[in-house]
Each structure stands twice: as structure tokens, then as C-alpha cells.
Amino acid sequence: MVADAIRGLATMTDVDAALVERCQQNDFDAFAELVQRYQTRIYNFVCKMTNSPADAEDMAQDVFVRVYKSIHRFRGESTFQTWLYRIAHNICVDRSRRAQRQVPVAYSLDAPTEEDGGEHPRDLPDRSGSPEQIAERTELQQRVWRCLGQMSERLRVVIVLYDIQGLSYEEIAKTLSCPIGTVKSRLFNARAELGRRLQSYVEAR
């Protein structure tokens, strides 16, 4: 699985630690490199958490601005990645609280998103198969998006971090400041809930 492959790569903490150290010595290029390494993952995480590609770029940038401002206070008590995801999660929670009274909007996966006045096509990597298969896959993706959006934030963050971002139980526990047992039980509940919702969709077709 892709998430498993990422989980292996997530141990590349030495490179991050060296870059962070350079950042703390005011090396701006090192900061640019950190952004380059994590921008897609953070953008993707924020996208999945908010279900709002329109806001995802601003929020991902908020994450890196906060990192930029506070990297001198990073003491290396956790990995940089864990710290980064914690900041990203906090920004998602803040936004969620602000938008609590707003009606959630469901986005179509293949609908173009507006980026700086232009249209930015969403990345749909797997276009193989017959038109029927593509349509079916797209419909399932939309359903998954919708189900994720309906899930509570506590469950959604765990399933996104584990099954999409590829973090380990330990990393998620540190990111969310909760015990590993809590991470496991939330992942169980999130998967079971998503599975039930998807099953009802499959049966309804």
C-alpha cells in the first residue's frame, strides 16, 4: 500500500534534523528545502481534513508561516514531521471551529479549482480503464470524500494520518498528544464507520 511505503520513508528524520538545524542558524535555503519536502503532504493533509481545496493552499501556507516563525523554538523533542503535522492539525481545528456554523460544502474531485484567478485541474493520477470504470472510480472517490467530510474530526484526523499520510501509531499519538491505545481505537472506529457508509452506498447502487 502507498501508506505503508510512506510509513517507511517517514523515518528519514536525520535529513529533517539537519535542515532544521540549518534553519535555526538562519539558513533561509534550508527552510525552502523543508517546504519543498513537505508542501505536498501538508497540502494533501489539509485538503483531506477540510474537504475544501479552495482553502487548502492558504491553510498549508499558514502552516509553513507558523513553522517559519517558531522554528527557533523547536527543541527536537519530537521529530520535525510530528511537530509539523501537529501545527497543521491545530490550524485545521481552528478553521473547523471558525466554520462550525457554516454549511459544509461537498467538492467534486474532477471539478477545477480556482487558484489565483486561474483554473487548477485536480490531480487524478489513475485514468486507466474503460470510461465506465473511470466513472465508477470517480463516483467512489466522491463518496469517500463525502464520507470523510461527515466523519467527526477526531476520527477523520486519525484515518487520514494513518491510511493516507502513512504515519505510524506512535507518530500519530505524538502528533495528537494522546495514548497509542486511543489512536488504535479511533482508527478502528473510523475504518468501521467509513466501511459501513461505503457499504450502504454499494448496496444502494
Partner: peptide, 24 residues
């Protein structure tokens, strides 16, 4: 159900930030 949920999550595309993310 769980297996289907995990497989469905793997189908989700990896969203990429628009070009020029660093510049902005």
C-alpha cells in the same frame, strides 16, 4: 467493511498544490 474503507482511501488522489506555491 474495513478492507473496503482502506482500499477506497487508497483511491483518493494525492492533491498537489498549484505551481508557484513557494513563491506565494
Amino acid at each position: 467493511d474495513m478492507r473496503q474503507a482502506v482500499r477506497a482511501l487508497q483511491l483518493l488522489p494525492t492533491d498537489q498544490p498549484a505551481a508557484g506555491f513557494w513563491n506565494r
